[in-house]
């Protein structure tokens, strides 16, 4: 294929793409318009049906719980994939996490960064834990809570303590927590089946006061397990990358 012919093929393709794109843009509904009945139906019935005032959680963990299960296993697979790809390869050696040259001149973490990280670690744990365990209210949810919990561990690392990060999140424990999180979600679904109900059916008592801690049945419980899974998955991914950066060296010497 000559360069000029290639250019014409490209221009024809690009022209077609632009035309279809513009056609699609022109056919979009107006800004902020909402055609479907789904949202209106949910707004009307979700709170009384699930006793969760956080309708987003009600959708994520009940009405469309099966979708969320799939999403959760995407994250599980991603974390597993990162661990497999970033394992120690032949020709690489893993150093001990303890500084081998303690006398060398390392620029210390600035006290401003340390202070900020230390100040924020506690509140971040609290916010993350609250979000993951209060799915019945809004805004909340296991995913958000889990990621924010994982951020707390990143703060520990940022405050300059790689060893403390390792001690707080030993890989074996993180693996178990992740498995419990992912398995717990699936197990709740299977428990419903064991009772002769549809998979992921909300079989727990819903409580009477919408948004109360005891309300919303399996929604809050599933969200909690999702929080565990997500936090562990993110910590695992970051820990693998930290190992790669700080411990694993090329060459066997």
């Amino acid at each position: 294929m000559t360069p000029s012919l290639r250019r014409w093929v490209f221009l024809a393709g690009a022209g077609g793409l632009v035309a279809f794109y513009l056609w699609g843009l022109l056919g979009l509904p107006g800004f902020g318009s909402y055609p479907g009945p789904y949202g209106f139906v949910l707004n009307r019935i979700a709170v009384s049906q699930t006793k969760a005032t956080g309708v987003v959680s009600a959708v994520n963990f009940d009405y469309r719980g099966f979708d969320t299960l799939g999403e959760e296993f995407i994250l599980l697979t991603a974390a597993a994939g990162v661990s497999i790809v970033l394992r120690r390869l032949r020709g690489e050696r893993e150093r001990s996490a303890v500084d081998e040259a303690a006398d060398r001149d390392v620029p210390a973490t600035s006290s401003a960064v340390r202070m900020t990280a230390l100040l924020f670690t506690g509140p971040v744990v609290l916010v993350g834990w609250w979000l993951a365990s209060h799915a019945q209210t809004s805004p909340s949810g296991g995913f958000q809570g889990g990621v924010i919990l994982a951020t707390a561990f990143i703060l520990v690392y940022l405050s300059g303590e790689f060893l403390v990060f390792k001690r707080f999140s030993p890989v074996d424990l993180t693996d178990v927590v992740e498995a419990v999180g992912a398995g717990g979600f699936a197990a709740i679904g299977v428990s419903a089946v064991a009772m002769g109900l549809p998979y992921l059916y909300n079989f727990l008592p819903l409580g009477t006061t919408p948004g109360a801690v005891s309300s919303s049945g399996t929604i809050a419980l599933i969200s909690f397990f999702v929080g565990l899974e997500v936090a562990a998955a993110f910590i695992l991914i970051v820990a693998e990358l930290l190992d790669q950066t700080l411990l694993i060296r090329h060459g066997s010497g």
Binding site: P139, I148, A150, V238, Q244, T245
Partner: peptide, 28 residues
């Protein structure tokens, strides 16, 4: 607000950390 929380944690913290660590590894 729910998406805000996810985006804050993932987009502003987790993704940059992962990228920075990768860059550090490549540089080493």
């Amino acid at each position: 607000p729910d998406v805000t929380l996810s985006e804050l944690a993932v987009g502003a913290v987790a993704l940059p950390i992962v990228l920075l660590l990768t860059l550090a590894k490549i540089r080493k």
